[in-house]
Design a protein around this nucleic acid. Structure first.
Length: 464
RNA sequence: GUCCCCAUCGUCUAGCCUGGUCCAGGACGACGGCCUUUCACGCCGUUAACAGGGGUUCAAAUCCCCUUGGGGACGCCA
């Protein structure tokens, strides 16, 4: 039998790391079983939900390649459906009208807290047989004894005393449905068979199961994924830095690196660290989801990103690079040129931001190349200048399409004649070509720059 | 406060269900080395954990209990 999973974010902000991970796990669970993955936007709270957030979430999921099937379900468009279901519960005696005000309920909770008990609504309208009325809410008649149990896909057998739960509100005073009601109705109507969500929802699960039972519906399988923590082991939050998935995009991470990292955070398959998307789909199972919270480690993400940068096609990276280049005016940014630079940087850059910085000296026209003062002072001393001057005709004589090996051989021969070590010219030449003391291989760099540009740079350096 | 959950190297984790093959394996990081025209890559090595205490057992990281520590939930938010 085919399964259906879903991701159900609330559009009150961007897609954050934790949400992205549950979306990924839900997506993987569906794909692993050849099932369906759906998206539902939980925007019943009109105050806090925005169109921008909805778009941002969908965009982030697309970036991670976690697209859902069909079009998203918007809860805000389904209030009539929820209300008709609430009516059914009212009719079959599983729900009742309550006229207590928020203040009164708060007072009850305070009282319970003061007595050292769990703060709950005390059920005082439960048997009053009230009908509809302005400002009145509909509450669920939670069984007062017994246990609600379920088998969590991640945590295993789980049970909650019904007495721990109070009579939750299903319909607010303004007529809008609440989260638990809407979720149950939608999951049922969307045919959701497996619900994978954050740990913070565990307490909702028994309430929702009670609703399924009141409706007489099949209960889906539930799984609760532990949270992601910051380096201080507290819940991951803004003060830990980037939370939004798209911020990682902007920091130069590749989507496959983030996906691999997230997959491995809380899930494992033996000792394997690197997973292609196909492997993830094939190997994923909820049985190997961990059940303790994990700390987000940017260093490991960086390592994975470096790995995927090395593996990526240069053309793809070249296409992504321009948006990371600061002050691009007057820079040489044509795709073919960028694609020739990228292979020299793939072994060196951990992010596209770094790659863009490293690429900069390639992109600047000769007259705008920035020479590091200390590098010039240290490396372009008179003897070094003399050598570069003598080297110039050698490079001028080289063919336009000389490969880097030929250039290196020519340089080596020049040095051999003078009984000099390679080191005698390496750093001076590097500074002349790049303005810096650190760069990709000299001759590869010269080949990418081209003969004309390389010569011009050496000449400019000699004139400094 | 009440209820629930969790607990292996600094971090992610394997192992735990089905006790012995674990003086606990892998990876990231850190540190050291090799390679080397710089920076990187790569390669090699070092570092470092079963939270504590009781049981059960011939044998416990693995099972049970307690303690401690951490987290979550208790909304007319989702």
């Amino acid at each position: 039998m085919s399964i259906t999973t879903r991701f159900a974010p609330s559009p009150t902000g961007y897609l954050h790391i934790g949400g992205a991970r549950t979306a990924l796990f839900s997506w993987l669970l569906a794909k692993n079983k050849g099932g369906h993955f759906l998206l539902r936007v939980e925007d019943t709270d009109r105050e806090r939900s925005t169109k921008e957030a909805t778009d941002a979430i969908i965009q982030a999921m697309a970036w991670l390649d976690l697209a859902a099937e069909g079009t998203a379900v918007f809860q805000s468009e389904r209030f009539d459906i929820y209300n008709s279901h609430i009516d059914k519960l009212l009719e079959n005696g599983h729900a009742y009208w309550c006229e207590c005000t928020p203040e009164q309920v708060e007072a009850m909770r305070e009282k319970a807290r003061a007595e050292g008990k769990k703060p709950k609504y005390d059920g005082r309208c439960r048997e009053r047989g009230l009908g509809p009325g302005a400002g009145r809410v509909v509450r669920f008649k939670t069984p007062q004894d017994g246990v609600t149990a379920f088998h969590d896909m991640v945590k295993g057998p789980t049970a909650v005393q019904n007495a721990e739960m109070d009579d939750m509100i299903l319909r607010r005073g303004d007529g809008s449905p609440t989260y638990n009601l809407a979720v149950v109705v939608d999951d049922h109507e969307m045919g959701v068979t497996h619900v994978l969500r954050g740990d913070d929802h565990v307490a909702n699960t028994p309430r929702q199961i009670l609703l399924y039972q009141a409706f007489g519906w099949d209960v889906p399988d539930f799984g609760h994924v532990p949270m992601i923590l910051g380096p201080d082991k507290a819940k991951l939050s803004k003060r830990h830095g980037a939370l939004s998935v798209m911020e990682y995009k902007n920091m130069g991470y590749l989507p496959e690196a983030l996906v691999n990292y997230l997959a491995r955070l809380g899930w494992s398959h033996g000792d394997q660290e690197i997973f292609s998307r196909a492997e993830l789909v094939e190997l994923f199972s909820t049985g190997h989801l961990g059940n303790s919270p994990s700390v987000f480690d940017i260093k490991k993400l960086e390592w994975l990103n470096a790995h995927y940068i090395k593996e990526a096609a240069p053309e793809r990276l070249a296409a992504l690079l321009p948006e990371f280049i600061t002050e691009p005016e007057g820079l040489k940014l044509d795709p073919a040129y960028l694609a020739s630079i990228v292979p020299l940087l793939q072994q060196r850059a951990k992010t596209l931001v770094e790659m863009a910085e490293m690429a900069r000296f390639f992109l600047l026209p000769t007259d705008r190349l920035v020479y590091d003062e200390k590098a010039v002072a240290d490396q372009l001393k008179p003897e070094a200048r003399q050598l570069l001057t003598e080297l110039l005709p050698l490079y001028e004589a080289a063919g336009d399409d000389s490969d880097h090996k030929a250039l290196e051989a020519a340089t080596q021969a020049f040095l051999d004649e003078r009984d000099l070590k390679f080191k005698a010219v390496a750093q001076p030449l590097r500074v002349a070509l790049t303005g810096k003391t650190a760069s990709p291989g000299l001759f590869e760099t010269m080949c990418v720059l081209g003969k004309g540009e390389s010569l011009a740079r050496i000449k400019r350096a000699l004139a400094l």
